[in-house]
Amino acid sequence: MTHHTYCHARVDLPRILRNIDTLGLTRYCEVRRQWDLRPRIIEEQESIRIYTEGDTDCSEVCFCERHQQVKCEVLECVENRPCETGFAVYNHNAPAYQAYRGECICYSGDFICMRPRAEEYQLPTGLFLLVGFSRTEEALLRAVTRGGVVDAVIPLQTIVSTVSSNMGEECRLDLYQHTTDNLVLQVRHFQISSGVSNHNYTLYMFQEERNRCEKPLRLVAEMINKRDPRIHHDVRLSLFVLAEVIDTVPNPQHYSYSQPSPLASGVWACWWAWPMALLVLGLESPPDSIFGSLPVFFGSVGVAFGKTRERHILLWETKEESVQCSQKCDVRNAFSLA
């Protein structure tokens, strides 16, 4: 059952009525538990999630209502249940393994992972934030917030906008897919995506979007994974447990001018050598002897080129045979292993 407790904020009216530069608030509530070193500040009409000292499975949600009055609702504690598979048993809140799903933890009998199950999603080109959430806590908080995990995308968007703005960028999130235990969010840049549909995106636009938004997105993912207070104590964002950034944008191709092959180098060197030889002969020999020797020279060029080509073909055939042999060996090995 959900228990309701009401407590009045410790209010200092003169402090409320003047602007608070550090918070940017004019009306707020203070909530302080016996284990808190300092009071918690809640903006009017906002809420906060407070965990019992030393036990993150038990918590309460406190609202700052009008006239600086605080109302707190104690949530049921998350049940400490293990996760069982055919190979292992994982304790509650312990790291766990699920194939192809990235980092995972066991949470009250359910696996929470960075990625959805392999059969549940397929990512197109783009930059994505994959978030794993707790269905158990979603059910607990639904009675208080009247919303689910999809509603948490709005405050998460606020976090992404704030972090990216501090870096001089304007990044936002689009809900791409909602699976059983995950949200798949595609990242967009306002300047790049404004007025452009998905099928009109170019590779350059995807790459530019990644270059601008990847760093702030990874910072937000780190905030979720490390249970940053801005995530952990936000009533809706506290549903998010694990996050991962996945980039499916192809990298730009870098073209380099490579050196010519030995075969080409040898042919061109050969062709350049014969004119030089003719020039030398022209200086030292009479014309009749020069023109008489041309068939011999060019015949030698043909023989040299023909031998070089034969060696090249022989090497190529040797490579072909070795590849075919390798493929046949692999097939034989596969049948022998089977």
Score class of each variant (00 low, 15 high):
Arg135Ser: 11
Gln69Cys: 06
Tyr255Lys: 09
Gln186Ser: 13
Glu169Trp: 02
Glu60Val: 02
Glu244Ile: 03
Tyr51Lys: 02
Ser293Lys: 07
Asn198Leu: 09
Glu53Val: 04
Glu79Gly: 12
Met167Val: 01
Asp151His: 10
Asn91Arg: 14
Glu169Arg: 12
Thr158Leu: 14
Met223Asp: 01
Ala269Ser: 15
Met114Asn: 05
Leu130Phe: 05
Gly102Trp: 03
Ala94Trp: 07
Tyr204His: 13
Cys325Leu: 14
Gln191Ser: 11
Val331Thr: 13
Glu222Met: 06
Asp234Arg: 03
Glu65Ser: 09
Leu294Trp: 03
Pro116Ala: 05
Ala338Gly: 14
Gly109Ile: 08
Glu310Gln: 15
Ile192Val: 11
Asp228Val: 05
Lys307Pro: 00
Asp12Glu: 12
Val70Thr: 14
Tyr100His: 11
Cys62Asp: 02
Arg101Asn: 00
Ile313Asp: 07
Ala118Leu: 10
Glu169His: 13
Glu310Arg: 15
Trp316Tyr: 12
Pro124Lys: 12
Cys270Asn: 13
Asp247Pro: 01
Gln157His: 09
Glu46Gly: 10
Val296Thr: 15
Thr56Glu: 14
Gln191Gly: 06
Glu120Met: 06
Gly24Arg: 15
Lys307Asp: 09
Leu278Trp: 05
Leu140Asn: 14
Gly148Leu: 03
Leu37Cys: 09
Leu281His: 08
Gln34Leu: 10
Val187Leu: 13
Val78Leu: 15
Ser194Asn: 11
Ser134Asp: 04
Pro82Trp: 12
Cys325Arg: 15
Arg40Glu: 07
Glu138Asn: 07
Gly148His: 01
Gly195Ile: 06
Arg210Thr: 09
Tyr201Leu: 12
Tyr176Arg: 06
Arg15Asp: 14
Val220Asp: 02
Gly168Tyr: 08
Met167Ile: 04
Asp228Glu: 11
Val220Met: 01
Cys113Glu: 00
Pro124Thr: 07
Ile246Gly: 00
Cys83Glu: 06
Pro124Trp: 03
Val220Gln: 02
Ala264Thr: 08
Phe190Tyr: 08
Leu281Cys: 13
Pro39Phe: 05
Ser194Cys: 07
Glu209Leu: 13
Val267Gln: 05
Glu138Pro: 00
Arg49Asn: 05
Ser161Leu: 07
Thr125Trp: 08
Glu119Leu: 08
Phe133Lys: 01
Thr248Arg: 03
Glu321Met: 14
Pro116Glu: 03
Tyr100Glu: 11
Arg172Val: 04
Val144Asn: 03
Arg311Asn: 11
Asn166Arg: 14
Asn182Arg: 03
Ala96Arg: 00
Gln191Glu: 10
Val241Asp: 01
Val70Ser: 05
Ser47Leu: 07
Ser258Arg: 14
Ala221Gln: 03
Lys71Gln: 11
Leu278Asn: 01
Cys106Gln: 02
Thr202Asn: 05
Glu317Ile: 08
His233Pro: 00
Ala99His: 10
Ala273Asp: 06
Glu284His: 10
Gln327Ile: 07
His3Pro: 02
Thr162Phe: 11
Pro275Trp: 13
Arg212Phe: 10
